[in-house]
Nucleic acid binder design. Structure first.
Lengths: 123, 123
DNA sequence: GCTATTTGGTTCCTAGTAGTAACCAAACAT
DNA sequence: ATGTTTGGTTACTACTAGGAACCAAATAGC
């Protein structure tokens, strides 16, 4: 368990990234930031996610108090998910990271290309 | 490749998280933000990391232009790693996330405990 | 009445990869 | 000449992320 030892490191960011570093959490949060949404609606809009991964992701977010789950007493029972205040504040924090990403993605792509090119031709 | 499809989603954050969401990258960046550092020095200070993971992590960061690698022409050749300006700016962006984590880690722990307790006793 | 579809999941299994352990090679020290 | 430091690479494994398939209830369609 190397990640555990890393947490002895007392680095709070690691906690966040353990939750949000996976492929889907951010996508779900961003989508829910637009407003509450039902399970299958989320599944449709987050293209490529499987039912299982959406369910797992939502459970995690719910457990951390980032998302609420509300079952509507309807015929085919509908479940509405929404961001909590905490989830909303995380969305803002992610926004910062997003800005950085937008400003730097071109530069990063160039760096990668240069790096790869340098190894490709060790002439 | 679900993560790929997710990137069609045109979500720049995902790019960042793909690089920085792993267990070690943030730790390395935080450590290098204190100043340049050699390979084994990093290995010693980042408790629990293996040689391979440190090497892999540094390669990734170098490829993205976040870290420079400088070989010192000494007897047992020493390699000094340092953050680039881009790496430094990422460190700042991570700082935001870190603040959020510090402010919310208590609340999150409580949410988790409450959630787990609720499932434990489905009385 | 019988089938199909929508709701929101859960179970089972596999493929991929994160991570560990072991090996490598040069140079200096003892 | 054996050991230790430097900075890795290679070979292997165990875990888990994630896809495919299944489940169950109710309404809609025919």
């Amino acid at each position: 368990m190397p990640a555990r030892r890393a947490q002895n490191y007392a680095c709070p960011v690691r906690d966040v990234l353990d939750r949000v570093g996976d492929a889907w959490s951010v996508l779900v949060i961003v989508e829910l930031a637009r407003g509450p949404c039902r399970f299958n609606a989320l599944k449709r809009v987050i293209d490529g996610i499987s039912q299982r991964m959406l369910a797992v992701t939502l459970r995690h977010l719910e457990r951390d108090g980032l998302v609420t789950r509300r079952v509507l007493p309807l015929a085919p029972p509908q479940v509405e998910y929404a961001l909590t205040d905490r989830g909303l504040s995380l969305h803002l924090a992610i926004g910062t990271l997003n800005s950085w990403a937008e400003q730097n993605q071109t530069g990063i792509r160039e760096s990668r290309a240069a790096y790869d090119a340098a190894r490709a031709e060790p002439a």
